[in-house]
Design a protein around this nucleic acid. Structure first.
Length: 305
DNA sequence: CACCATGTTCCTTG
DNA sequence: CCAAGGAACATGGT
């Protein structure tokens, strides 16, 4: 569930539930979840502290906690990885199989469930230093975006996944934004025209905003008990959520008709990850700038062999 | 058994 | 130091 919109919706959901509550117990399932913070350090840091604020940066959740005497302030950096969920449940309810972190807050437990354990819950803020601008803030401009893209020969789709370029896009919304901007995912970043970059800049913001709006409107199941939650936020309580069909235009829709022109959506693999696009609405570059990286890589391999 | 999956980081090579 | 590619991480679904 974890790209910027999902994290944003989760933060808005958790904020009123957690702020003001005090942590009495801390349980961490395995060391790597808190790494590089030692589990014992995290436990001692949180015990007795009260949630003061919860915010987001890129795909990271930031939990601000304060001690009783305004002595210290602890900031926990959370990341959902691929399969992370966070929610509250009654303290006497059974914990999920893969409970990565459990914070007891009296009558309720705050649960960070993470099947694959790719997520993080740590005091180390290091990862935040490498993040690019927030896409929905004023620091993310068409001009700054253009400047960064002009230095790269990588396919634009791969560049969009680089968190130093812009923070919060993931595999789903990268495909969606390129479709909205009518740009081929294979086009090299530096080959984009000023007009295309502006379209892409707008598409990124629009796609993310729409997803946040939708996630805040539809009733969500944060525990993810829903059947079809793989692609969705956390799964809607409804097994067939209204509007599910049109939520994503291309992602995971290979073979389906493009909502614009009816052409079959195609799937391709870039950097070992799936990209979905409409070959007609997002046509390949005619001159140079497309497929170049691929050819270069092939030549390199030939030279080695 | 094979392949796929919303993400990040580390290692290698150039 | 930078850019780019690939494997690794861990578990489950189809």
């Amino acid at each position: 569930m974890p790209e910027l919109p999902e994290v944003e919706v989760l933060v808005r959901h958790l904020h009123p539930l957690l702020v003001g509550r005090t942590v009495c117990g801390v349980q961490v399932s395995r060391p790597k979840v808190a790494a590089p913070t030692p589990v014992e350090v995290l436990r001692q840091a949180l015990k007795g502290f009260t949630f003061a604020n919860i915010t987001r940066r890129g795909k990271y959740l930031l939990f601000e906690c304060r001690g009783r005497r305004a002595t210290g302030c602890v900031k926990v950096v959370g990341h959902l990885g691929m399969t992370g969920r966070m929610y509250l449940q009654p303290a006497d309810s059974p914990l999920p199989k893969h409970a990565s972190v459990v914070l007891n807050c009296g009558t309720e437990n705050f649960v960070f469930e993470d099947t694959r354990y790719f997520g993080r819950f740590t005091l180390d803020p290091g990862a935040l230093n490498h993040l690019g601008p927030e896409p929905l803030s004023s620091e993310f401009t068409s001009e700054s975006f253009s400047k960064v893209l002009s230095r790269s020969t990588q396919p634009i789709k791969i560049k969009l996944l680089d968190q130093r370029v812009v923070a919060g896009l993931g595999n789903i919304y990268a495909s969606e934004a390129l479709f909205r901007a009518r740009i081929s995912p294979r086009a090299s970043a530096r080959s984009l025209t000023g007009q295309e970059i502006h379209r892409l800049w707008r598409a990124i913001r629009r796609v993310l905003r729409e997803a946040i709006t939708r996630g805040s409107t539809v009733p969500l199941d944060f525990r993810g008990a829903g059947s079809r939650d793989g692609l969705f936020y956390y799964g809607s309580k409804d097994s067939t959520p209204a509007g599910y069909e049109e939520r994503l235009a291309v992602y995971d829709r290979a073979g389906s008709p493009c909502p614009n022109c009816g052409t079959h959506i195609e799937r391709l693999v870039q950097a070992a990850r799936s990209t979905f696009f409409c070959p007609k609405c997002q046509p390949p570059r005619t001159k140079r700038g497309e497929g170049r990286g691929k050819r270069a890589a092939t030549n390199r391999r030939r030279r080695i062999a």
